[in-house]
Amino acid sequence: MKVVRAAYAGACYGVQRALDLALKAVEDGGCAYTLGPLIHNPQVVAQLAECGVRAVDSVEDVAGAGTVVIRSHGVTPEVKRSVAACGLPLVDATCPHVARAQRAAADLAEQGRHVVVVGEAGHPEVEGLVACAREAGAPVSVVAGPDDLPETLEGPVGVVVQTTQTREALDAVVAALEERGVQLLVKNTICFATRQRQEAAAALAGEVDAMVVIGGRNSSNTTRLADICAAACSRTHHVESPDEIDPAWLAGCAVVGVTAGASTPEEQIEAVATLLEAL
Rank of each mutant, 00 (worst) to 15 (best):
Q102F: 06
K80L: 08
Q198H: 03
L279F: 07
S220W: 14
C95V: 12
G74D: 07
E179P: 13
S241Q: 11
V126F: 05
P96L: 03
E240A: 05
A205N: 09
R17T: 05
V159E: 09
V159G: 04
E154D: 13
P139R: 13
G66D: 03
T76E: 06
A262R: 00
H40V: 00
V161C: 12
E27W: 00
D57P: 11
E60P: 04
H73N: 09
A271H: 10
V75Y: 04
A262P: 02
R100F: 08
H238D: 01
V159D: 07
L185W: 15
A271R: 08
G158N: 02
A25W: 00
L204Y: 06
E266C: 10
A136C: 14
G74H: 06
G30F: 11
A273M: 06
V116A: 08
T164C: 12
A32V: 11
L276A: 05
A22H: 06
T223L: 06
Q47K: 07
P42Y: 05
A176M: 04
G257Y: 10
T166Q: 03
A9N: 01
V53Q: 06
L170D: 04
A193F: 12
E120M: 07
D61R: 01
L225A: 09
A231E: 15
L250W: 05
T67Q: 10
A85L: 05
